[in-house]
Amino acid sequence: MLGSGLLQGLKVTAKNLVGSFHDPERLTTLEYPEQKAKLPENYRNFPFLVSENATDPMGTLRCVGCQICEKECPPQCIYIEKSKDKKPDATGKMQVYPVVFDIDTSVCMSCQICVEVCPFEAIKMDQVFEIATKDRFTALLLDRNQLAKPNSYYHEIHPTEAAEVDARLLAERKAAEEKAKAAATPKPAVAPTPSPTATAPKPPEAPAAGGTPAP
């Protein structure tokens, strides 16, 4: 009969109206600034640079300025200048370091490709999202001082992933030490993820015609 569909609809909305007072399934909103949703561990937003030590972040950056992330970054939001000299890193090994490491977060799309291509576990995804600012130019262009965050912070936001990374780094360091004992020429750390042959300071893949333009 005409109208039965309308009455059914009214029944459903009435059920939801009443349900919103007693059924949490029917009132799923969170009052944002007071209540905050628990971020899943995998949540990612904007990269940061891992430093081993919170007291001396610039001295203990894992980043060696190899510029792979700069090249692989799809929106080209990373800008790196590597040092001419070498400084000892957290393990005491002499390393090149980034003199300038800027990320333009107004361009960054949090795709985490920089994290995936980094052979040194030096750049990881952060979980910040309350980053509104009144100044859209300088305040969103983060330099290496703003980007550097200690490894403990990494453990805080991505516990399982950070534990895996630390274990892998330790194993690599041990392997490298043993290798160093065996052979006189020390080799840099071995890449962790799927391509174990790719070594870090390898010269960048020469871009083909129409390759990635420099920022």
Binding site: N16, L17, S20, R26, T28, T29, E31
Partner: peptide, 8 residues
Amino acid sequence: LGRIQNRP
């Protein structure tokens, strides 16, 4: 309307 639509 909010309550009908499951929001406060």
